[in-house]
Nucleic acid binder design. Structure first.
Lengths: 116, 116
DNA sequence: CCGATATATATAGATTATCTATATATAAAT
DNA sequence: ATTTATATATAGATAATCTATATATATCGG
């Protein structure tokens, strides 16, 4: 993965929910879309995504439905729920706090703390 | 912890090395300084920090020396090495890539990808 | 036509970075 | 004198990723 996997840790749920906020998607599509939208920074593995989707469904954050586009091939589409939108909003707020704090530490010289 | 521990995951090493770039510090001081500089967003636990410092020392990223400030009390100061500065630079570049990508996904609407 | 690669989902087990809990010891505050 | 803060350390638990493997269909090149 382009980005350190440990950095990605914790934001995957937020990113997936964000994708679903725009439109219903199936798993494989999410992996591709995340890769494209992040300029190949995120290359989520199937072994990470599918268990995560199952977990989100169990928690009521998303619901799924099967779609048989071309005859046999089955795609499992996911749709974000109201509860899922709530979680997304929380995660976004958390992310905002987190990345602002990291950047403050990184930019701050020895006496930055004095400005607060 | 104010920030989701999973979000913090992966950036702790970078943040610690950044603190040491400014000045030599001892463990307990790093915890307090991180908390202060991040406006209480990061409250690193001792059980996380000390093993991490030992690991960084083993890898040659930092070196340590004991300082007996007031008689008995021992503080173990850490100093960043040239190798550690190299790692910090790498981690900073990675972080820049990562948080830019996350923000792009978060801000991007359904057709953002078209702009690339 | 056939083999390789891409699409699509799924699960088990390994890895890793955090956490909590616990231990030890001195200093400061009430 | 007892509690709280300072200071470091390690063991074990938790959680989120990864790799590896499995299954099945679709597409592409030779």
């Amino acid at each position: 993965m382009a980005a350190d996997k440990t950095l990605l840790s914790g934001s995957t749920t937020m990113l997936i929910l964000k994708l679903l906020e725009d439109k219903d998607m199936y798993g494989y599509q999410m992996i591709e879309e995340l890769s494209k939208k992040s300029n190949d920074t995120f290359n989520l593995k199937a072994g990470t995504l599918y268990p995560l989707l199952h977990s989100l469904e169990q928690q009521g954050m998303v619901i799924s439905y099967d779609d048989n586009v071309d005859s046999a091939r089955i795609r499992k589409y996911y749709s974000i729920t109201k509860k899922g939108r709530g979680l997304l909003a929380d995660k976004k707020a958390e992310w905002q706090t987190y990345f602002t704090a990291v950047n403050r530490v990184l930019k701050g010289g020895a006496n930055l703390a004095a400005s607060y």
